[in-house]
């Protein structure tokens, strides 16, 4: 499916992510929900009165932690660094000097980042699901399997959308981290919870629309979802959003090469 050089770019980007300090940090972020679930189990086992069951905990962790924090921060870390690391390390000329279109390099890197982060998030969600759902009994594991599949799919979409956004910012901005924080944590977290139309411009709103936690027994999770939008529209928004920023990123990386060539000629 992928031509050889594209596969190579995909491969070394993915390997670099998993072997870097950022990769280790990401790993640490992945296991927090597991620790939370284990803590809940421990408290229940010790007979301590707890404010929620496993299903609610799972819902909160997926909504508030995975989609509201883990995915934005992980994609911010890796997305803004995709090309910046190559520039800082002085390896961009080597990449650009290969007989491979710049857009393909960019897309291969974004694809690698999406694959690695989605796989990591899936691992986190699966572990959380097993550890927290089983608190409410083995039956809950089977009953909420549809929820799990929906969460996995939505998380992958979230990684793709945020990843495209931050990869674009990494190319477009001199201080992508600053803008990424403003947009990813400022705008997204602030506006997504406001009433009115504005929240429809955020990723978080559409992701929450897709997340299938509609029948949580204790109501906490349901309260967090205040969306009456259709899932089809939410899905379409996310796909268009992703495609838009990937397209803009391709345009920028093509221009990045041209301006470098102009400097050399000058």
């Amino acid at each position: 499916m992928m031509e050889g050089p594209v596969r190579a770019v995909f491969g070394f980007t993915a390997r670099g992510m998993t072997r870097s300090v950022k990769g280790w940090l990401f790993g640490l972020l992945l296991v927090l929900p597991w620790a939370a679930a284990l803590l809940l189990r421990l408290l229940i086992w010790k007979g301590v009165q707890v404010p929620m069951g496993g299903v609610t905990l799972y819902g909160i962790l997926v909504l508030a932690y995975v989609t509201g924090f883990l995915v934005p921060i992980a994609t911010l870390f890796f997305g803004t660094s995709l090309v910046a690391d190559e520039v800082e390390g002085g390896t961009l000329p080597y990449l650009f000097g290969r007989p491979l279109r710049r857009e393909k390099i960019f897309l291969a890197k974004v694809a690698a980042m999406t694959a690695v982060l989605a796989a990591g998030c899936w691992l986190s969600i699966l572990g959380t699901y097993l550890l927290s759902m089983s608190i409410d009994g083995a039956g809950a594991l089977g009953r909420e399997a549809g929820t799990l599949l929906g969460d996995l799919a939505t998380t992958a979409l979230a990684v793709a959308a945020y990843g495209a956004l931050f990869a674009f910012l990494g190319l477009a901005m001199k201080k992508p981290l600053f803008w990424g924080l403003i947009i990813g944590f400022g705008w997204e977290n602030l506006v997504a919870w406001l009433p009115g139309f504005l929240k429809r411009l955020t990723l978080l709103f559409h992701l929450h629309t897709l997340l299938p936690h509609s029948a949580a027994p204790q109501g906490v999770v349901q309260q967090m979802l205040a969306s009456s939008e259709s899932r089809v529209i939410a899905l379409a928004f996310l796909l268009v959003y992703t495609a838009l920023f990937l397209g803009l990123g391709c345009v920028l990386i093509r221009r990045m090469e041209a301006s470098a060539a102009e400097r050399e000629e000058g």
């Binding site: 939370a36 404010p51 929620m52 962790l61 932690y65 921060i73």
Partner: peptide, 17 residues
Amino acid sequence: IALVFFGDMACGVVYAI
């Protein structure tokens, strides 16, 4: 960001439980 925001998030999760 990792230290501060993650710290806040971890505290929030543990507090919720």
